[in-house]
C-alpha cells in the first residue's frame, strides 16, 4: 500500500495544493486502494498488485485541463527534473551565508555613496556653488566613493545571482530542516518588524534635521545639518536593506507553498533594487546640481529618496511574503 501512496504522492508533488488538485489526489488514491485490496483478496501477490494498480493509474496529463494545472504540468515537463530542487541543510546554510554577504556588499555600497555625498555637502563652503566653485577634493572623493560603490554593487550582485538558476524552482528541504527555518523565520519576525520600523523612523528623523535648522540652511550650519541628515539616512537605509534581504532569504527557504513564479521572483527584490536605486538618486543629485547649478537646493533629492526608499522596502515586505497563505486556502 505504501508503494502506491508514495507513487501517487510523487505524481502530485509538484502541483499546487488547490482544492481541485487535492480532491483529484484523494479520489485517485481511493480508487487505487480499492483496486489494490481487491487484487490482494483475489490472492494476487503484493508486488503483482502494486504493478497492476500502477499500470492502470494512467497519466496526470489527462487531468491537466480539468484541474487547471496545465501550466504547472508543462513547466514540470519542460524542466526535466521538475519544478523543484532538493536542497540539503548545508546548502541551505550556504545559501543564507551567500545572501548575507550579498546584503553587506549592497548596503555598504549604498552607505559609501551617501557618505560621499555627505562629505561633499559638509565641505562645501557657505552657500555652496553659488559662485560655481565647488571644492575639487571633496568632489573627487565623491567620485571615488561612487566608483567604490559600483564595485561593491557588482560583487554583491554576483553573489545574489549565484542562485539564479534556482529562481523559478521550488526548493525542497527535508521536513525537519524546513520546520526549523520556519520556526527561525517566526522567531525573527519581531526583530524584522523592529528593524523595518527603526530604519524608516531613522530616515524620517534624519529628514527633520535640516528642517529644524531651516533658518540656517543657507549657512555652513545648514550644510552640516544636511551632511548629518545624509549619514543618518545612510544608517537607516543600511538597516532596511539588511532586514529586507535577510527576510527575503528566509522566505525563499520556507516558501514551499509558493508556486507561482511571479511571486517567487519578488524574493530578494530589496537587494536587487537598492543598488540601482541609490545610483540613480546620486545621478539625479549630481545632474541637478551641475546642470541646474542648484547646489543650494539639490540636497532635497536625499530626504525624498530616503523616504521613498523606506516606502518601497515596506511595500515589498508587506506584499511579497505571506501572500501564499491566502492563496493556499483557496
Amino acid at each position: 500500500m505504501d508503494a502506491i501512496t508514495s507513487y501517487i504522492d510523487h505524481m502530485f508533488r509538484s502541483l499546487p495544493p488547490t482544492t481541485e488538485v487535492s480532491r483529484a489526489r484523494s479520489e485517485l488514491l481511493q480508487m487505487s486502494e480499492d483496486r489494490y485490496r481487491e487484487l490482494l483478496a483475489e490472492g494476487v501477490s503484493e508486488n503483482e498488485a502494486v504493478g497492476r494498480v500502477i499500470t492502470q493509474f494512467g497519466n496526470l496529463d489527462e487531468l491537466a485541463d480539468d484541474l487547471g494545472i496545465r501550466r504547472e504540468l508543462d513547466r514540470a515537463g519542460s524542466e526535466g527534473e521538475g519544478a523543484s530542487v532538493e536542497f540539503s541543510h548545508e546548502e541551505a546554510e550556504h545559501f543564507l551565508d551567500v545572501r548575507r554577504r550579498g546584503a553587506w556588499f549592497i548596503s555598504a555600497g549604498v552607505f559609501v555613496i551617501l557618505l560621499g555625498i555627505s562629505q561633499l555637502v559638509f565641505f562645501a563652503e557657505g552657500t555652496a556653488g553659488v559662485d560655481g566653485n565647488t571644492e575639487t577634493v571633496p568632489l573627487a572623493l565623491l567620485f571615488v566613493c561612487i566608483a567604490g560603490a559600483v564595485a561593491l554593487f557588482i560583487v554583491g550582485g554576483v553573489s545574489l545571482s549565484r542562485y539564479d538558476r534556482l529562481e523559478h524552482k521550488e526548493l525542497r528541504l527535508e521536513p525537519q530542516v524546513a520546520t526549523a527555518y520556519r520556526a527561525q523565520r517566526e522567531r525573527e519576525q519581531g526583530t524584522f518588524v523592529a528593524l523595518l520600523a527603526g530604519g524608516v523612523a531613522l530616515i524620517i528623523l534624519a529628514v527633520a534635521i535640516p528642517a529644524i535648522f531651516v533658518d540656517a540652511t543657507s549657512g555652513p550650519a545648514g550644510n552640516r545639518a544636511v551632511a548629518l541628515m545624509l549619514v543618518i539616512i545612510a544608517i537607516g537605509v543600511t538597516i532596511l536593506i539588511q532586514a529586507g534581504m535577510r527576510r527575503g532569504a528566509l522566505d525563499r527557504l520556507t516558501a514551499e507553498g509558493d508556486y507561482a513564479p511571479e511571486k517567487r521572483r519578488s524574493n530578494s527584490i530589496t537587494g536587487r533594487v537598492a543598488g540601482p536605486y541609490w545610483m540613480l538618486a546620486a545621478a539625479v543629485f549630481l545632474g541637478w546640481s551641475f546642470i541646474g547649478d542648484a547646489w543650494d537646493r539639490s540636497w532635497m533629492v536625499w530626504p525624498i529618496a530616503g523616504i521613498l526608499f523606506g516606502a518601497v522596502v515596506v511595500t515589498i515586505e508587506s506584499f511579497s511574503p505571506d501572500k501564499r497563505k491566502v492563496d493556499g486556502g483557496r
Partner: peptide, 17 residues
C-alpha cells in the same frame, strides 16, 4: 478495453461540472 483511473476521474469530474 481498460480505462485508466485518471481517464475515469477526469470524465467524472467533467460530467459533474
Amino acid at each position: 478495453y481498460e480505462m485508466k483511473e485518471t481517464t475515469l476521474y477526469s470524465a467524472v469530474r467533467r460530467l459533474e461540472k
